[in-house]
Amino acid sequence: MSIGHTLLGLLEKGPRHGYDLKRAYDERFGQDRPLHYGQVYTTLSRLLRNGLVMEAGVEAGDGPERKRYAITDAGVTDVEHWLGTPEKPEPYLQNTLYAKVVLSLLSGRRADDVLDVQRAAHLAAMRELTKRKAAGDLADQLICDHALFHLEADLRWLELTAARLDRLKTAVTR
């Protein structure tokens, strides 16, 4: 899962400082694996280096440094590209897909586009497997079926999510 793209997506709503970003990330996507501060700052500095974010002033105060970051135009383009590219169809994608859906909703983009693109990618993979299965022996068939059922699970989740986009939208933009 791409932390960089996720942070960029979170920044689309407005400039934040690193601590805020970590909190927002953990709240939405880090249920069992919260980010370390270190991870946040290394990622941010990489994004800064690549010109996808920029510093938007420092907040005065005691405690640690409170530098605010904002997304650049290049950053927005990068997020858009990321959202529009399907993930490689493989098992256990839900975290990334979920993040993409939520970030689309948060940024007012069409989340069903994300889902449709992903479905197309999944189906293409499944078609490939189905063809292999038809040509292969029993062992091939069983292996392909295993993969097919996992991909199907992803797709079912996609459908389920698509059917509940409206509710999800109210939940995340609350």
């Binding site: 399907p86 069903d112 449709d116 479905r119 197309a120 990618a121 999944h122 189906l123 499944m126 199907e152």
Partner: peptide
């Protein structure tokens, strides 16, 4: 509505709320 059945197709069309969306095959 079954993806594994849809996998026998060459391409898919998605219908949602009475509107359809044609997907070109991904290669």
């Amino acid at each position: 509505h079954e993806p594994r059945v849809a996998a026998y197709s060459d391409r898919e069309v998605v219908v949602r709320d009475g509107k359809s969306r044609e997907m070109e095959p991904v290669t």
